[in-house]
Design a protein around this nucleic acid. Structure first.
Length: 391
DNA sequence: TATATTTGACCACC
DNA sequence: GGTGGTCAAATATA
């Protein structure tokens, strides 16, 4: 059953691409000529980004085995968006709003995460693009002192897959403990474990755990002896449906509250599924898989040799976000079902890369569609209770 | 209504 | 027995 065929996503936004392309080329102010001159530049940059994205779409079939080329093209798109953001900052658009809209990709800034992994790659990309305005490659930062409003932080958290709403109870209201002992609490796991240090978000709420591109569900928090900050425990959001056993612990460092120590345990079996929403033609998958820890190792937990630095992981995340993000909202709705499902995870789940993407849509893909759709068809409608491993 | 976080209690390990 | 990891009820949010 093909829910969303890849080829179905081209036409709906092609006219808009053309429109913005023309605006971009002609520098025409969409909202009239009385806007500050720089607004034309903003629109031009956005138009460029759309144009480049459109070109990239067209190039995908031929360039699917050329990650460097694809990276370069993505790089150009990012650069155009970054320029637009910077220009907007100069014209009274609150940095907070811009940042909140784009933060989720890790805290590092909206689009800087697509920076290439090495200076060599960056140089190659610049050559491919034929220009090198390096100042545009710098990450976007919020002005000092700027603080994201609650709703913005919330939005960021939503996309980061960490929403769900804080719960503050005034008084304990638990039921008395059950008389029957609970079973199956095993601490010893399979042993796959990797610890990395990750910088906190550079804007907004630094208490948000770093986004690594996966979707996590928090299942516990513990005060750790000798640590000022509690340790948070997360497991993969897909645990229930895919039996994904990936977990992570996030601990803020005592001596540097702006750093997190993240320990990954287990592997992401959920990555064997695909997300049709992001199921770009295989070229994108190829480029992504190059950087994906899963692709490199066959498991969600990468060994040290292949473990991506947070920036790299986020870059993958960002790239996937871009893939959706530059589509017109209405079309995103078509593809992603507007992603309201659970509020939170819809956004970031889309960022989970996959090692192998097929053009077919096996059952797990359908499940993923439902994960991301937020539509009326619930997962329980697809996976009956006996399929759930953690009910 | 579904899905998220919070948080006290439970349990395994050292 | 202390500590860390996990469970699961309660509850907030969209």
């Amino acid at each position: 059953m093909h829910v969303l065929a890849p080829h179905s996503r081209g036409p709906p936004f092609a006219p808009l691409l053309g429109y913005l392309d023309r605006r971009g080329r002609e520098g025409i102010a969409i909202h009239g000529g009385d806007l500050p001159g720089g607004m034309d530049d903003v629109l031009s940059q956005i138009g460029d980004a759309f144009r480049l994205a459109g070109e990239l779409m067209g190039d995908l079939p031929a360039a699917q085995n050329d990650p460097a080329y694809l990276a370069a093209r993505c790089h150009g798109i990012v650069r155009a968006y970054n320029t637009a953001i910077r220009l907007l900052q100069n014209y009274g658009v609150g940095a907070v709003n811009v940042a909140a809209a784009a933060r989720p990709l890790d805290g590092g800034g909206p689009l800087d995460l697509l920076r290439l992994r090495s200076t060599e790659e960056a140089a190659g990309a610049s050559q491919l693009l034929g220009e090198t305005p390096t100042h545009l490659l710098e990450p976007f930062h919020m002005p000092a002192g700027a603080r994201a409003p609650a709703h913005a932080v919330r939005a960021a958290a939503d996309v980061a897959g960490t929403s769900g709403g804080p719960v503050r109870r005034l008084a304990p209201s638990r039921s008395p403990p059950t008389a029957q002992p609970r079973q199956g609490r095993r601490r010893r796991d399979s042993g796959q474990r990797e610890t990395i240090s990750v910088p906190a978000h550079r804007m907004g709420n630094i208490e948000l755990p770093p986004d690594d591109g996966y979707t996590w569900r928090k299942y516990g928090q513990k005060d750790i002896l000798g640590s000022r900050f509690p340790r948070s425990y997360y497991r993969c959001t897909h645990k229930n449906y895919y039996g994904c056993d990936a977990k992570k612990k996030v601990q803020r460092l005592d001596d540097d509250p702006f750093m997190y120590e993240v320990t990954y345990c287990g592997s992401h079996s959920c990555l064997t599924s695909t997300t049709p929403l992001l199921n770009f033609p295989t070229a994108t998958a190829t480029a992504t898989a190059t950087n994906s820890p899963t692709a490199a190792t066959g498991s969600g937990l990468a060994p040290a040799d292949h473990f991506m630095a947070p920036t790299e992981q986020a870059a993958v995340s960002t790239s996937m976000h871009l893939g959706v993000g530059w589509m017109p909202a209405s079309f995103q709705g078509v593809v992603a079902g507007s992603g309201a499902g659970g509020g939170s995870s819809a956004g970031m789940q889309t960022s989970v890369s996959t090692a192998a993407r097929d053009t077919d849509y096996p059952a797990l893909d359908l499940a993923d569609v439902m994960f991301n759709s937020g539509g009326s068809v619930g997962m329980d409608g697809i996976f009956s209770s006996h399929h759930r491993r953690d009910s």
